[in-house]
């Protein structure tokens, strides 16, 4: 059940992001100073031209939400995938090779885990400067450990299995054994982590753009909308509430998808109703 709810939520956000130019009634950065702080359609005084109302500069909230989904999902997919590739590669290397390689990678993970992730991503963004790809790079550099830590533990179990020894004995090279025998065994775990990481990336992007360190203040990202909506939250709470709900729906979608995948892909759970 979780898997399907999650998949539906994610699919809806993806569709909204892809179809943003077609669905959005306005340009997301177009200001209309005659129509500022309009309420959404279910409230008195709403203008049908702005279905979810406008912000303090008269920008259409629906259009901004739709275009914000594009930024959130770009960051989520690219950053999470890259973090998964980097983290898992290092994990397989550490778990398979062992010895000093494992020691080095494990100590690096320890150092990274001493940072609150938000703090590390903030100083990285200070160093990189704002920009969409810098956000992606910061998330990868912070969150590769989430994969490395968990996948390494799993690799350590897998490499002791007989079929890995059999592959080596039948003449497979180390690289081939790692790619053909070890990686497929840890792939379900990686997929679950990937889905959870996408949710985390959405939140991190929102945090960074809220602080003003992500994509720049003029780009319609959800975190920027939250920062903008905060100043008028007393008379116009929707400017704040709508981006919060958008983030929640997206994160919940990725989390449920990840949880569902874990239950589906784990042979020990198969056949049990979650």
């Amino acid at each position: 059940m979780k898997l399907w709810i999650g998949a539906c939520l994610v699919a809806m956000v993806v569709l909204a992001a892809l179809a943003a130019p077609a669905l959005a009634p306005h340009d997301p950065v177009e200001m209309d100073l005659l129509n500022i702080l309009l309420p959404p359609f279910w409230q008195a005084g709403a203008d049908p031209a702005f279905p979810l109302g406008t912000d303090a500069l008269g920008r259409c909230l629906l259009s901004r939400l739709l275009y914000g989904a594009r930024i959130a999902l770009t960051v989520a997919f690219v950053a999470a995938t890259a973090a998964a590739v980097v983290g898992s590669a290092l994990a397989v290397l550490a778990g398979y090779r062992g010895g000093w390689v494992d020691w080095l990678i494990s100590r690096a993970i320890d150092v990274w885990m001493s940072f609150p992730p938000v703090v590390l991503s903030l100083i990285l963004m200070v160093a990189f400067g704002v920009g969409l790809w810098n956000v992606v790079a910061a998330i990868v550099l912070v969150d590769w450990t989430r994969f490395a830590r968990v996948v390494r533990a799993e690799v350590l179990v897998v490499v002791r299995r007989d079929y890995v020894a059999a592959a080596r004995l039948s003449g497979f090279s180390h690289l081939r054994t790692a790619l053909r025998e070890v990686v497929p065994a840890v792939a379900p775990l990686m997929l679950t982590l990937l889905s959870l990481e996408m949710g985390i990336a959405v939140v991190v992007e929102a945090i960074l753009s809220f602080v003003g360190l992500s994509v720049g203040p003029t780009v319609p990202a959800w975190g920027v909308m939250i920062a903008d909506g905060r100043s008028d939250m007393v008379q116009h709470p929707y400017g704040l509430l709508l981006p919060v709900l958008a983030i929640l729906a997206t994160v919940l979608g990725f989390n449920l998808l990840g949880d569902g995948l874990r239950q589906k892909l784990n042979p020990q759970h198969r056949g049990r109703t979650p």
Partner: peptide, 9 residues
Amino acid sequence: DTGASALMA
């Protein structure tokens, strides 16, 4: 189970 997942998200 689902409720806890939702809250934790």
